[in-house]
């Protein structure tokens, strides 16, 4: 079933400011500055205060940071996810196309935050952990690079990922009544990297291993990272709906209404609908 079968009435154009780069830019600027500051902290105190787990400096500079991370992350996750749930839309069937389109913009910003955090955690700080372990012999599971990589950057992408999923399921008709398989994989699979740290740390604790980065003990991280490929499926689900909304809002083309999408979102996923407005 294609999106062109049914129409809805009452088209209103969204405000231009609804699709502003400014808020997105400010948010990403803040996020980038935050990661830079974390990197600066690591450079200042990893080698100077982070080589001896039994020292007082280690407790002050690194274990203190770890405990702070746990507390702040738990509060942030509970507050953000709770707020998204409490303020959920309870009348999604009456959602106008213009409002739905602006919500996709907000959703895209959250998903982009997730993607950026996945890059920072899985790519940049993971290799940083590699060069750290090749330089320093570890004497604890909670090495400075782990306190940044495992217990800071990984929870951050989990917080953004789950937040995007809650936002989609509570505010976008396409994801409200059905569970998107690729979306669950996109968020759930990288989440499993966090429990996989248990396996990793057990292995490094039980066996005094040389720091071979390609050791099979590490493969669980890569396996769960593959879930990132599900961005393909999520994109193929959302893209046609977004384009259909643009065609409808600005050109008056027919579209499935919110209530129809709620009944059957599969009709919104035809990639043939995913072409630019200029070709409408």
């Amino acid at each position: 079933m294609l999106q062109t079968e049914t129409t809805t009435t009452g088209v209103g154009l969204p405000e231009k400011s609804a699709f502003s780069w400014r808020k997105v830019g400010v948010f990403f600027g803040a996020l980038t500055v935050f990661y830079l500051l974390i990197n600066v902290y690591l450079r200042l105190f990893a080698f100077s205060k982070g080589l001896d787990y039994t020292s007082q400096d280690y407790s002050t500079y690194w274990m203190g940071m770890l405990l702070t991370e746990f507390v702040v992350e738990a509060i942030t996750a509970a507050a953000l996810w709770g707020w998204l749930w409490i303020t959920r839309d309870r009348a999604l069937d009456r959602l106008t196309p213009a409002e739905e389109l602006t919500r996709y913009w907000a959703w895209a910003a959250i998903v982009l935050s997730y993607a950026f955090s996945v890059y920072v955690g899985a790519s940049f700080f993971t290799e940083q952990d590699g060069t750290w372990h090749n330089t320093v012999v570890r004497d604890t599971d909670f090495t400075p690079s782990h306190i940044v990589e495992f217990y800071l950057t990984f929870p951050i992408y989990i917080i953004f990922g789950v937040a995007s999923l809650i936002y989609a399921m509570t505010r976008l008709p396409q994801f409200a009544t059905r569970i998107s398989l690729p979306y669950v994989i996109l968020i759930g699979s990288p989440i499993m990297i966090m429990p996989n740290i248990g396996l990793n740390e057990f292995g490094h604790t039980r066996w005094f291993m040389e720091e071979l980065f390609v050791a099979p003990l590490h493969w669980g991280f890569a396996f769960f990272g593959w879930g990132g490929l599900a961005i393909f499926g999520v994109g193929l689900q959302a893209c046609p709906r977004i384009m259909a909304l643009i065609h409808h809002v600005y050109y008056g083309k027919p579209i499935l209404s919110a209530s129809e999408v709620l009944k059957d979102p599969t009709g919104t996923c035809d990639p043939a609908c995913c072409y630019p407005a200029s070709e409408a």
């Binding site: 996709y104 913009w105 895209a108 790519s123 993971t126 961005i231 643009i246 050109y251 630019p276 407005a277």
Partner: peptide, 27 residues
């Protein structure tokens, strides 16, 4: 306006996919 909004969504999609691929392919 439609073209402007379309371009912006396309940028979102492209950058998002690129960042996820960078992160997980590198991992």
């Amino acid at each position: 306006e439609a073209k402007r909004v379309t371009r912006r969504f396309e940028w979102f999609l492209l950058v998002t996919i690129a960042l996820v691929l960078m992160g997980t392919y590198h991992l």
